[in-house]
Simulated scan of single mutants.
Amino acid sequence: MRVYLPCTLPALARVAAEGELGPAPLTGYAVTPALIEWYVSGDTEELEYVALTEAARASLRMILAERRDGAEVAGRRVVIAAEVPDRYVKTGTDLEERARVRVETPVPLRRMASVHVDDTEAIPDVDAAIAALPAADEGDDDARFVVDGAEAHELMWYATQEIPDLLR
């Protein structure tokens, strides 16, 4: 199953150094039965884009958490696309997050198909979205608009062989 795993640049550096994303369990996003049912008219490509977008939103939260822990993390969303055997992927019943899955094993680099990362031009909008997350979570419509604004930036596609260059 193709799973989109939210990440950050420091976590991606650990993946490059250790050869895997872990430890398990990991939260990911995929084309689940609940997503297919909800998005009745979408083809596979559209559904994968929805899952990728959900993972990019989760990446915002990961950046915020790392910053709160004192780390200096660039405002660039990161999503790893990986092929994970179905037996390690558990789908939930959360209607709010129809694409969310739980990956019950670390994901080795060899299972990663690509990495999707914001261009540096997106940093101001991503930083604004991260700053607005707490207010957006409390229902502030203006803050939600700012968070949604990060999605105006398409994530750039990188082959896994390009990870070392991306991290420089």
Rank of each mutant, 00 (worst) to 15 (best):
M1H: 12
V3T: 10
C7A: 09
P10C: 08
L12N: 05
V15W: 07
E18I: 02
G19M: 11
P23R: 08
T27K: 01
T27S: 02
Y29A: 00
P33R: 05
I36Q: 15
W38D: 12
V40Y: 13
S41G: 09
D43G: 15
V50E: 14
V50Y: 15
E54Q: 12
A58C: 02
S59Q: 03
S59H: 03
L60N: 04
R61N: 05
M62Y: 10
M62W: 09
L64H: 10
R67L: 09
R68F: 08
R68K: 15
D69F: 13
D69C: 11
G75I: 06
R77F: 05
V79R: 01
E83C: 05
D86P: 12
R87T: 13
K90A: 14
T91L: 03
G92R: 03
L95T: 10
R98S: 05
A99M: 07
R100V: 04
V101T: 06
R102S: 15
P106T: 13
V107R: 12
P108D: 08
L109G: 04
L109D: 04
S114M: 09
V115Y: 03
D125V: 08
D125Y: 11
D127Q: 11
A129Y: 07
I130R: 03
P134R: 04
D137P: 00
G139D: 07
D141S: 10
A150F: 02
E151V: 01
Y158F: 15
T160S: 00
I163Q: 00
D165W: 00
